[in-house]
Design a binder for these strands. Structure first.
Length: 602
DNA sequence: GCCGTTTTCGGCCCGACTGTTTTCAGTCG
C-alpha cells in the first residue's frame, strides 16, 4: 500500500483533462459497502451473544444508512465532514467508521469474531434458526461444523433438546440438505411480474374477495426482489387463505393461519399473503410495502403524536382514526402521501414533512429513447421497424446506436458501414414523419480510454454513446482513468451502463463513480440509466449522486428488439427510486432541446 | 449504540404463526 502522497500523484488527472469540479479522487481503503458489511457482521455476533438488541439494531441501522449514502464516507472524512451528523451514527460508530476508512480494518469486528463460533453464524443463516437456536445447537450438540449438526439431526439428537422437536429437526435437515441458506435467493424485478399477475388473478376468484395489490419491494420497484407480498381486502380471511393455498403453482405451504399465509412456488419464489378488512387496506399496504426502515421511522413519528400505527390502521388509544387508504395513514401523522419508490428511510419522511418531496418522473414524461440497436449489428429489427415501434409507443425520437467494430461478435460497425447507416437514416427521416431517428453509435471504450472509431467519423453523428465491454477486471484506478479519458474525447455524449453490472450475475466493475459523475459534470456529458431489467445501471444511489452533482441522466432501453422498448418502465421506476424528477432526465426534453444538448457534447 | 418540544437517562415498532407448550419463546416480516 503506497503512501498518501503516492496515491495522490498516481490518481491525478492526466494531461489534457480538466480536473473534476470538486478535487481529487483518491483510493479509499474501506468503502461504504465494506463498512456496512462489517457492521452487519458485528450485529450478527452481538445477536449471538444476546447483547442488547437495541445495540444490534443500531449496527444494522448504521449499515443501512451507509449503503444509502451518495458519497463515500472516506471522502466525507477528507472533506472534514462530521460523520456523527449522519442519522443513526453517533460518536462511537463514527469512530469505528473512521478507523475502517483509514486502515481498512475493524478492530471491533476482529475482536468479536474471535469470541463466537463460526458455526453459529452459519447456522443463523438457515431459515427458522435465529441467534438463540444457533447458539444452543452449537453448545448442546458440541458441534463444530454444519456436518456435525447434520449428523446429530439424523441421529435424532436435535429433537431431544428441550424446546426443539421432531418437526424442527426435519426442517433443519431439509434446509441443510437444500443448502437453502437465507443468503436470500433473489429474483430480478421483471422476472417476477408473471408470478405476481398469476397470483393476483387466482386471488381475484377467492370467496369474498374485494381487492388486492402486490406490496413489498416489488411495489417499491427494487431492482431485485426476494419474495412477493400480497395484500387482500376481504371480509373473511380464512376463506381467502384456504383458497390461496390451492394456487396451482404452489410447491409448499410454509405457514397458513386465519389472516396470513406463506407459500413457496415451484420456482422457489416465496409469496406472503395477508388478508385484512377493507377499512384496514391502506394501513396494510403501508405496512407490507415497507421498507421496514420506513415503517419504523413512520411509527416513531406517530408515537411522538400519541398515535400508534400497525397494519390495521392508525390508532389514538383504541380508536382507529385512519387506515382505509394509504393517503389517510400518512395524513394522520401530518404527511402527504409518499410514493412507494421513495420508502427507504433515506430522507423521504423529512422531505414529506417539509413539503420537499420530489415530483417523481413518470413514464409518460419520457419523449424519446437514446440507445437502441438494429439488425445491422446484434439487434433483431431493421431501423424502419424500430422507428415504427417507437412511434407506436408514442416516442418522438429514437437514436440508432449500433455497436462499433471492436465488438466483432456483434458484427460491430466500421467506418464505412457506419457512414452507410448515416445515409440510410437521413433518407428515412426525409421520407417519414412522426418520429425522428437520431444518428448514433455505441462505441467501445478501449483499454487505454481511446474510442473505437476515429473522431472524424464520430463527428458526423448526432450523439456518441461510450461503453465499456471488455477488461472488466482492471483496478479501480485504471478503470476510472480509462472512463475519464474516454469522456474527454471531443465527441462523447453519454456513458452507457456506467458500472457494467448484470444483476445477480456479474458485479459492477471497480470504478469510482463519484469521480465519473463529477467528470461528467465538468465535461458536460450525460450518464445512462440503462433500463434493461438485467442491468438497471445506474443504481438508485448513483441516480441520487448524479442529481446532487447536476448531471442529467438518460433513461435508455438499449433495445435489441422492438419488444425491448417496453423496458422503459423499469428504467423509469429505477429513476424514481433515485428521486429523479422530469427535469433531471435528458430524454424528457423535446427533440429540439435534446438535439441542442447533444450537440454541445459533440 | 443512538437519541432528545420526553435532553445526559431511559427509552428504543408491532403483530402473526409455529412448534412445543400448557401460557409462551423464537423467528419472521
Amino acid at each position: 500500500m503506497g503512501s498518501e502522497k503516492q496515491k495522490r500523484s498516481s490518481n491525478r488527472p492526466k494531461r489534457g483533462m480538466r480536473a473534476p469540479a470538486n478535487e481529487p479522487c483518491e483510493p479509499i481503503l474501506a468503502r461504504n459497502e465494506d463498512i456496512a458489511r462489517a457492521f452487519d457482521d458485528i450485529a450478527d455476533i452481538y445477536e449471538l451473544e444476546r447483547d442488547n438488541p437495541f445495540r444490534v439494531r443500531a449496527y444494522r441501522n448504521a449499515a443501512r444508512v451507509l449503503r444509502g449514502l451518495t458519497v463515500e464516507v472516506g471522502e466525507m472524512l477528507r472533506q472534514g465532514e462530521k460523520l456523527d451528523e449522519l442519522p443513526g451514527i453517533g460518536e462511537d460508530l463514527a469512530g469505528q467508521i473512521a478507523e475502517m476508512a483509514r486502515s481498512g480494518r475493524s478492530s471491533k469486528l476482529e475482536e468479536l469474531a474471535a469470541a463466537v463460533p463460526r458455526l453459529a453464524l452459519e447456522l443463523m443463516r438457515l431459515p427458522n434458526v435465529g441467534p438463540k437456536r444457533a447458539m444452543r445447537l452449537c453448545d448442546e450438540l458440541r458441534a463444530r461444523s454444519l456436518d456435525d449438526v447434520r449428523r446429530a439431526a439424523r441421529a435424532g439428537k436435535v429433537r431431544s433438546l428441550s424446546g426443539f422437536g421432531a418437526k424442527f429437526e426435519q426442517a433443519l435437515l431439509h434446509s441443510l440438505a437444500a443448502a437453502d441458506l437465507k443468503k436470500e435467493r433473489r429474483f430480478k424485478l421483471a422476472s417476477v411480474q408473471g408470478y405476481a399477475d398469476a397470483a393476483l388473478a387466482h386471488l381475484a376468484r377467492a370467496p369474498g374477495f374485494e381487492k388486492a395489490e402486490i406490496a413489498g419491494s416489488f411495489r417499491r420497484r427494487k431492482e431485485t426482489v426476494g419474495d412477493l407480498d400480497v395484500i387482500v381486502a376481504a371480509r373473511r380471511g380464512q376463506l381467502v387463505i384456504d383458497w390461496f393455498t390451492r394456487f396451482p403453482e404452489i410447491e409448499k405451504v410454509v405457514s397458513a393461519g386465519t389472516t396470513r399465509a406463506t407459500v413457496t412456488l415451484h420456482s422457489g419464489l416465496q409469496i406472503d399473503v395477508r388478508v385484512v378488512p377493507q377499512e384496514s387496506y391502506g394501513a396494510a399496504l403501508v405496512y407490507f410495502t415497507g421498507s421496514k426502515a420506513h415503517n419504523i421511522a413512520l411509527r416513531r413519528l406517530a408515537q411522538t403524536q400519541d398515535l400508534k400505527i400497525n397494519e390495521y390502521g392508525v390508532f389514538r388509544g383504541d380508536r382507529a382514526i385512519a387506515g382505509e387508504t394509504e393517503a389517510s395513514v400518512y395524513a394522520a401523522v401530518g404527511l402527504p402521501m409518499i410514493e412507494p419508490e421513495l420508502r427507504e428511510d433515506q430522507g423521504e419522511i423529512e422531505a414529506a414533512a417539509s413539503g420537499a418531496l420530489p415530483a417523481l418522473v413518470r413514464l409518460s414524461d419520457i419523449r424519446g429513447d437514446l440507445h437502441a440497436h438494429t439488425s445491422e449489428t446484434d439487434g433483431a429489427n431493421t431501423l424502419e421497424e424500430l422507428a415504427q415501434a417507437a412511434k407506436e409507443r408514442g416516442l418522438r425520437y429514437i437514436a440508432v446506436t449500433d455497436h462499433s467494430r471492436r465488438l466483432a461478435f456483434a458484427h460491430g460497425l466500421d467506418e464505412n458501414r457506419l457512414l452507410a447507416q448515416i445515409d440510410r437514416i437521413d433518407a428515412f427521416n426525409d421520407t417519414h414523419a412522426g418520429v425522428e431517428v437520431l444518428k448514433g453509435i455505441e462505441v467501445d471504450i478501449l483499454e487505454n480510454g481511446a474510442l473505437d472509431l476515429p473522431d472524424a467519423t464520430l463527428a458526423r453523428l448526432d450523439l456518441v454513446i461510450g461503453a465499456v465491454h471488455s477488461q472488466f477486471g482492471l483496478s479501480r484506478e485504471k478503470q476510472t482513468e480509462r472512463i475519464l479519458r474516454a469522456m474527454e474525447r471531443p465527441h462523447f455524449s453519454i456513458l452507457a451502463h456506467p458500472t457494467g453490472r448484470l444483476l445477480l450475475e456479474r458485479d459492477a466493475y471497480e470504478v469510482d463513480m463519484t469521480c465519473v459523475i463529477r467528470a461528467a459534470k465538468a465535461r458536460g456529458c450525460f450518464l445512462e440509466l440503462n433500463a434493461h431489467p438485467d442491468r438497471l445501471d445506474l443504481s438508485d444511489v448513483h441516480c441520487r449522486m448524479a442529481k446532487a452533482e447536476g448531471v442529467l441522466v438518460s433513461v435508455n432501453t438499449d433495445a435489441h428488439r422492438i419488444q425491448d422498448l417496453a423496458n422503459l418502465r423499469f428504467g423509469v421506476s429505477q429513476a424514481r427510486r433515485g428521486w429523479l424528477e422530469k427535469d433531471d432526465i435528458l430524454n424528457t426534453r423535446s427533440l429540439s432541446t435534446v438535439r441542442k444538448l447533444l450537440k454541445a457534447t459533440m
